[in-house]
Design a protein around this nucleic acid. Structure first.
Lengths: 342, 342
DNA sequence: CTGTTAGCGCCTTCAT
DNA sequence: ATGAAGGCGCTAACAG
C-alpha cells in the first residue's frame, strides 16, 4: 500500500501498454472510450499519482519557479509572495522560496540551487548591487530561464522587472509635506546604492526644487530600516542649529523611531512636526498616532511579476522579451502629517 | 552556450565513460586522482550543473519539502517559514510554499500537488479540523512521507507536531490579569474547533477557577482575528449589565480593536481596564499604548519543525516515529496591562 | 486505436 | 580504476 503505483502497474493490471495508459490519462483524442474509462478506473483504484519529477525530467519543464527575497518575514515581501502564489496557483506552478538575507554570496548560491533544481523561472528582489552577481544573472539569461526582478531591480538586458515608481513616491510624500506648509523637510534614506532608495531620494529632491525650497544636505541622513535607526537619526536632526519641521522617511520603521524620539523631546506631532513614511506597513495604520505612508501595493506587484513571467514563458518565439512594469505608489495620509484630521 | 551540459558532454570531451564522470564528480574513492582532476576541470570549463531532477527521479529523493500555511502574509506564518528555511538550508533542502487560504479543499489540493511533486516531507499548519482531510493525511502517512504539523495540529497517529502550549499561554495571560487585581475578565476566542483556540480558552478557564473567580459565560465571545471583530466584541461586552474590567484576547488584532473601542468609550487603559493579546504581532510593541501579548516564538517553532523533519528523514529504520514538541509561550507585559509601567 | 522504442540525466550494480 | 548496461517514470515518435 505504501508502494507508489506507476503507469506500468496500471498497464499490467489491464494487459495493455504503458503508452496507452499514458495517453488515456492525458485525454489523448485517439483512445477508445472504453479503454480510457478502464484506465481511469484502475488509476483511481490503484491510487495512481503522476510523478511530476519524471514528467519534468522528460519535458524539461519542472513547473516550479523560484522566488528569492532578502527575507520572508517582512510584510512587504510576504505580501508579494502571496501575490505571486495566487497568480501562479491556477497555472499549476509551485513556488520555491529562498532567502538571501541581504547577502550577495547567498544570493548567488540561491540562484545556482534554483537553476540546478531546473526551475522554469526566477523572480527576485536583489539584495545588493555589486557587480559580483552580474555574471550569474547573465548566465540565467543565457540559459533562457525567465528572470524577473521585483521592487529591487538591476538594469540588465533581457531582464524584466516590476517595480513601483519610487521617484513618484518620494515626490508625492514630500509634496504633501510642502503642501502642509513645511519648509524644512528632512529625509531619511536607505542604502543609496539600491535604486529604490536612490529614486525616493531623487523624488524628494525634485519636489523640494519644484516648490522653491532650498535643498539642505544636512537634512538628508542615511538610516537603516529599523526603529532604532530612526531614533538616532531624529536625535541628530533635532540637534541641528535649524532643525527640520518635517521628515520624509524611506522606511516606516525609521519613521516610527523618529516619531518616538520627536515626541520624547516634547515636540507635538502633527502640530509642530510632521512625518511621512514609506511602505505602508500594517502597524502604520494601527498606531493611535497613525503614520502617513506611501503604499507599494505588494500584492499587486507579486501578481504582476507572476503575470510577466507567464507571458515570458508562453512566448515560444526565440526573440527575447523584456518588460518593465512600473506601478504607481499611493500616499496614505494619516495623523502623523495632517493637522486637519486630528 | 545556452545548452545544458550533461555528464555525457564531459565524458565525450575526455573520451571516458559517463559513469566515470559521475563517480569523479561524486568523489568516489576509487577514481584516479588524475582523471578526477580532469573531470573537475572540464566540468567547470563546460559550466556543468548537476540536474537535480534526474537525480531526484533516480534516487526517489527530491530534496524539496512542502510547507502549507493558511496564508503567508501574516507575521506568524512568515516567521515560521523563515525558521524552517534557515534550518533546512544547510541541509540542502528547498522549500515549496503553498497557501490553503483556510480552505480545506485547497488544502487537499496542496497536499496532492506536493505529493505529486515528490516532496520528501510536508510541514503544515492545518486550516480546519473536519474529517474530510483525514483521509488524505492518512495517505501521506501511509506513503511514508514525513508529515509534521506546526501550531495548528490534528491528532493523528504517526504524525509529529510542534506547537506551543496554548493552554499555558491562556493561563499565564489570564493569571497576569488576575494578579493585576481584575476579577471580571472576558475572553475573546477564535474558532474553537481549532485546538489552539480551544486550549487558550481552557487555560483561561483554569486560571479563573484556580483563583477563586467565577466563570461567566457572558464574558466569552468568539471573534475573528481582525480589528473590526475586536471592536464589535468590545462593544457588546461593554453593554453588559456588569461589564468586564479586563480582556484576554486570543488574537492581537482583536485585542487592538477592543482597545480602540474601549478608549473610544472613554475608559482608560490600563487604569480602568486591561487587555492582553496573543501572538506578539510586531505592532503590539510599536503602539504608544503597547499591548501585552503572549509570544509564540514562531522562528523557533519553524526551526523545531524542520529539525523534527530531519530526524524523521534520517531515521532509516522502518518503525514509525512520532514526536510531539511543545514550546513554552512567553508573556510580554506591556502598557495595556500594567498600571506600574505607565 | 494501440504497441514498441527510445530518451530525458543521473547513478549503481556488474563486469573487466 | 574504468566501462557497459539498466532503470527511475513518463511521453512522443514511429509503426502498425
Amino acid at each position: 500500500m505504501s508502494e507508489k503505483t506507476t503507469i506500468y502497474d496500471i498497464a499490467k493490471e489491464l494487459n495493455i501498454s504503458a503508452a496507452t495508459v499514458s495517453r488515456a490519462l492525458n485525454n489523448n483524442s485517439k483512445i477508445s472510450k472504453s479503454t480510457c474509462k478502464l484506465v481511469m478506473e484502475t488509476a483511481t483504484k490503484l491510487n495512481y499519482k503522476q510523478n511530476k519529477l519524471a514528467l519534468a525530467l522528460r519535458s524539461g519543464k519542472s513547473n516550479n519557479i523560484g522566488v528569492i527575497v532578502p527575507r520572508i518575514d517582512s510584510n512587504f515581501f510576504a505580501s508579494v509572495i502571496r501575490g505571486i502564489e495566487e497568480e501562479l496557483y491556477p497555472n499549476k506552478y509551485n513556488i520555491i522560496i529562498c532567502q538571501s538575507h541581504e547577502d550577495e554570496q547567498r544570493e548567488i548560491e540561491n540562484i545556482n540551487t534554483l537553476l540546478n533544481a531546473q526551475v522554469d523561472g526566477i523572480l527576485m528582489s536583489i539584495s545588493n548591487v555589486s557587480s559580483e552577481n552580474d555574471r550569474i544573472i547573465k548566465r540565467v539569461v543565457e540559459k533562457n530561464v525567465p528572470l524577473i526582478f521585483f521592487d529591487r531591480k538591476k538594469n540588465i538586458d533581457g531582464v524584466s522587472s516590476v517595480t513601483i515608481n519610487d521617484f513618484e513616491g518620494g515626490y508625492i510624500a514630500t509634496k504633501h509635506l510642502i503642501d502642509g506648509g513645511h519648509k524644512r523637510i528632512a529625509h531619511l534614506s536607505g542604502n543609496q546604492s539600491l535604486e529604490i532608495y536612490e529614486n525616493r531620494f531623487k523624488g524628494y529632491k525634485q519636489a523640494i526644487a519644484d516648490n522653491g525650497l532650498d535643498f539642505n544636505e544636512d537634512y538628508v541622513l542615511q538610516a537603516r530600516s529599523n526603529v532604532d535607526a530612526g531614533i538616532v537619526a531624529a536625535k541628530s536632526l533635532l540637534k541641528l542649529k535649524t532643525p527640520p519641521d518635517a521628515i520624509f522617511s524611506s522606511s516606516d520603521f525609521a519613521a516610527l523611531g523618529a516619531i518616538q524620539e520627536i515626541k520624547e523631546q516634547g515636540i507635538r506631532i502633527p502640530e509642530d512636526f510632521c512625518v511621512v513614511g514609506f511602505g505602508n506597513e500594517p502597524f502604520t495604520k494601527f498606531m493611535e498616532l497613525s503614520i502617513s505612508s506611501v503604499d507599494q501595493s505588494p500584492l499587486e506587484m507579486g501578481k504582476m511579476a507572476a503575470k510577466v513571467f507567464l507571458e515570458q514563458i508562453n512566448n515560444h518565439e526565440n526573440f527575447k522579451m523584456e518588460k518593465k512594469v512600473v506601478l504607481m505608489p499611493e500616499l496614505h495620509i494619516r495623523k502623523s502629517s495632517s493637522k486637519s484630521s486630528i
